[in-house]
């Protein structure tokens, strides 16, 4: 299949890292970056390909995380089963929110605002509802067995999140080359024109939102297993909604590798900021904001787009140079 080779290459290269270094700092850093890449890929599918800019992907992340945690802690369900149910629950939340928003015909900034509102409502509910542990939060029991989806070695966690990112890349590439992908982009570009060509725009957006929510929820499920602690601010807080959209926008919206590139850049910047300034709270967000402005102003198609432009310009300048000399 065309276009899968670069994905395989990137994943294999990243998979080597734990063989080179056993530093927990490096592995932890990469796990977080990959987690954001996965969550960002979910956002990218709906926002980048479908043009529906969500400010509330925390709704899906948090649902995945809480469902995984609560099923284990309160109902004694196996972590792997909980993991799958968590993804399904996130997809369901995406489908329900999508149905409400798209049936009401909300687009653009209204779509963004309503998704933000849904995430905030869920955050507030989670911060008072007894089942989520309310203000205290939910602590998962430490149980370092593979059956419980917990590992002594950080490297195993790293390979698992890497595999999830790899799957999300492959899925995005397959969608890109399918009729559904073509319809999704057509809806982004011009909904009326698309529907005149037989595209059921509401259905296409709804499917995209469901898949998007499932991917982001998978990130939430992983988060719960990795950190073994959740509260309303972590699960449904705006931080994850922001990182979910920051990574693909900086990396390149509507491109397969955009979220991964963006997540690595954003997380590197965040770490560098922390190292240089000590732990000044919120300073990393200031840096993100600055980078976002630079990207939107000078490279609206992100890092991936910048690479493509440079390559094209380089190619053209060569041809142009030959021509002017001749």
């Amino acid at each position: 299949m065309k276009g899968l080779a670069p994905i395989l290459f990137a994943i294999v290269a990243l998979a080597m890292v734990p063989l080179i270094t056993s530093s927990n700092v490096v592995i932890n850093f990469l796990v977080m970056a990959l987690l954001i890449a996965l969550v960002g890929q979910g956002w990218n599918l709906l926002g980048g390909y479908g043009g529906q800019y969500s400010f509330g992907h925390a709704a899906f992340f948090g649902t995945g995380a809480y469902v995984t945690a609560i099923l284990q802690m309160r109902y004694g369900i196996n972590a792997w089963v909980g993991f799958v149910i968590g993804i399904a629950a996130g997809a369901l939340v995406g489908a329900v929110i999508g149905l409400l928003i798209f049936r009401a015909g909300l687009k653009g900034s209204y779509f963004a605002l309503v998704t933000l509102a849904f995430a905030e409502v869920l955050r507030i509910v989670a911060s008072v509802a007894p089942i989520t542990g309310a203000g205290v939060g939910t602590l998962l029991k430490l149980d370092l067995r593979p059956e419980a989806f917990q590992f002594q070695s950080r490297a195993l966690f790293y390979w698992i999140i890497l595999a999830m990112v790899g799957l999300s890349l492959v899925l995005t590439r397959l969608i890109e080359g399918s009729r559904f992908g073509a319809y999704l982009v057509a809806v982004r570009e011009n909904e009326d024109a698309a529907s005149a060509l037989g595209v059921d725009a509401t259905m296409v957006k709804l499917c995209a939102m469901t898949i998007s929510a499932a991917m982001t929820a998978a990130g939430g499920c992983f988060y719960a297993q990795y950190f073994l602690f959740l509260d309303a601010g972590i699960a449904y807080g705006p931080w994850i909604s922001i990182e979910a959209l920051l990574a693909p926008i900086i990396g390149g919206v509507g491109t397969v590798f955009g979220p991964l590139l963006g997540a690595l850049v954003v997380k590197t910047l965040g770490e560098v900021t922390k190292l240089m300034t000590g732990d000044a709270p919120g300073l990393d967000l200031v840096i993100y904001g600055g980078v976002l402005i630079l990207v939107v102003a000078f490279a609206p198609r992100g890092i991936a787009g910048l690479f493509a432009d440079l390559r094209q310009r380089f190619g053209f300048s060569k041809i142009g140079g030959e021509g002017s000399r001749g």
Partner: peptide, 17 residues
Amino acid sequence: QPFAGLTVRENIAVGAH
């Protein structure tokens, strides 16, 4: 109402799909 971000071929392909 072209799909401005797409090529001519991709535009027409949406219909052909």
